[in-house]
Design a binder for these strands. Structure first.
Lengths: 337, 337
DNA sequence: CCGGTCTACTAAACCGGTTTAGGTGTTTCC
DNA sequence: GGAAACACCTAAACCGGTTTAGTAGACCGG
């Protein structure tokens, strides 16, 4: 039944020692070419595959890396980020024989325990850290544990911490400039939580772009990336005495919810109000009017993050990684002021 | 640095043999209470944690299970299913000390190789199978390999294959009955791929519900669960000489895209046309009008699937699992005919 | 006082690989 | 011609647990 051949079986069949087989399989020097080939042939014949459990033990490596998602499932639910990101990670990891271990913890608090456990049990050789908070304590924890980690987030200098910079500044800047070009002067922002790095950085980018255009900072409402909060924020903005003529949202979900609110209040988009999102969700192109938004190369981030983490684990020097910059996709939700 | 204490260290510190420590930690009989407690105290003192690599090797178990997602990242992107499902899996797995291993393969073809590799390398003790196709060959493959597996999908008898039945019939039935109750007689369906089990089963449910109501089968267009296809299908339906007065979509994404198409064509929803979705995506409640849809307990499926798989792996008898049935959520997108 | 049973533990094998320390037999070099 | 160098391979230790076989000592009955 479970008679998967071991390295011992191969050794016996090839008439050599266990060690010789290991040498041959990892093509290390010290074997006659003829012997090496005989061993490899035997291994192939027997259908031998390495047992990663045994290997992991003997090389003191887990041959796996971890991704901890610390959010309530509800927030996770609509996130367009993870599936693509994971696909990107996987494309690199699987080629190096690494597996991806996933953990979901309901609350931020549990996350520390989660990382510690992964490390203590020797389940992973490194981890990815996403959704970085301002003053996040995880980097310190991971440094203390000595677990290689790559942070995925905007605007972190490589010097500060091994990170894959997912720079969202240019995307937001482009969106604001696009709106400015259309003649808008009152440009509002519906932000993500200011406690989160990517919430804050998008807000700062919006603010900086307005300043650069010589415009006053429009109203800004802090939300939490959810549809509900996006809808509420939009209602609030439309209730203002001096309505904004354009709103830059920190993600598509809030933008699409906002679009519905505007429509239901009889506000014409883009006639009376222009909207932009962020993420370029699949649905964004199919709402009415189609959403102008920022498309990002999440798959590419995944690949980059995985590449960097493997380099870190193997203590190789970091190779330069090129990430496609975010790209503004202009659709129907933005128009002249 | 990496001086995590091993069972040997504990043994030495407690002045006993390695085996005794193992006995104590797995509280097996054959140790004096006093000795056992001394060992446990020492282990606690030293901060010992089990090395799951070593354990995995010696018990010939991976202590991990796998989930293979075989879809192009684009399709994966907008899927509301996976994040919640994974959260459900994790809540059960982590309690049993199992890890979840994720694989993403770009095409369906690679999936077989993927499962085989996971099994051959001894990385997992079992797997979950989702997105079942009609005439899917994976169950046969997994049976051949001898890898425990749980299929997640609608309408599969437990007898046929260890499965967690995610029955979508009642949800679709409720939707159709709701529309019938509102006086609709021409009820169309925008289906998922008929090659996929959950595409087909939802279509059959729609068809059966109409028959039960004594209504003729309305037009049905096969799509692929994507926003683009949903929009196209809707356009096609609205172009018919005899327009349907209601459309039942196989998922929310297509329904929301369809809603936008209807709106842009000047068709009033729900005045001229009623629409229902499936999934109860976060955004569904925030489009205009809010989408009537079917809410499902994806988290619960995850928990159930994980529970069943662990039972299978441990060769324990299957406990009965209660799954919350899908629930129709009536919102603004449906109204009197 | 001796053989048998029971308790409480130890020693050692084992899981399936990797890696290091030898150990042959042949070649090389002075 | 003998020692050193080398190529090629084996034996055995090791990773950190689990598990089995075995043993020392206490206890018991006759």
């Amino acid at each position: 039944m479970n008679a998967r051949p071991t390295i011992n079986d191969v050794a016996r069949a090839a008439g050599v020692s266990k060690g010789a087989v290991s040498f041959a399989l990892n093509n290390r020097p010290g074997l006659a070419t003829e012997t090496r080939e005989r061993i490899l042939a035997t291994a192939r014949e027997l259908g031998w595959t390495p047992n990663s459990r045994a290997r992991a033990l003997s090389v003191s490596r887990a041959l796996a890396v971890g991704l901890v998602m610390a959010r309530p499932p509800e927030t996770l639910r609509a996130d367009p980020f993870f599936p693509s990101f994971i696909a990107g990670l996987e494309s690199v990891l699987s080629e190096s024989g690494y597996a991806l271990l996933l953990q979901v913890v309901p609350e931020h608090d549990h996350e520390h325990a989660s990382y510690r456990r992964l490390a203590d049990e020797g389940r992973v050789d490194g981890v990815f850290v996403t959704d970085l908070h301002v003053d996040d304590t995880r980097p310190a924890l991971l440094a203390e544990i000595g677990l290689p980690a790559v942070v995925i987030g905007p605007g972190l200098g490589e010097a500060f911490w091994p990170a894959v910079g997912v720079d969202d500044v240019p995307g937001i800047t482009d969106a604001v400039e696009h709106l400015v070009g259309l003649g808008h002067t009152r440009i509002a922002h519906v932000a993500g939580p200011s406690a989160m790095v990517h919430g804050r950085s998008r807000r700062n980018a919006w603010s900086a772009a307005l300043r650069a255009a010589g415009l006053p900072e429009g109203p800004c409402i802090e939300a939490d990336f959810s549809a509900e909060a996006g809808a509420a924020a939009t209602r609030e903005l439309l209730d203002l005495n001096e309505r904004p003529s354009a709103i830059v949202y920190a993600n598509d979900l809030m933008a699409m919810a906002g679009l519905s609110v505007a429509t239901s209040l009889g506000v014409d988009v883009p006639g009376d109000l222009s909207l932009t999102g962020y993420d370029d969700t699949e649905l964004a192109a199919y709402v009415q009017p189609p959403l102008t938004t920022v498309s990002t190369d999440v798959l590419g981030w995944g690949r980059a993050a995985a590449t960097r983490l493997l380099e870190l684990i193997d203590q190789r020097p970091a190779t330069p990684l090129t990430l496609d910059p975010p790209r503004l996709v202009v659709r129907g939700s933005t128009g002249p002021a």
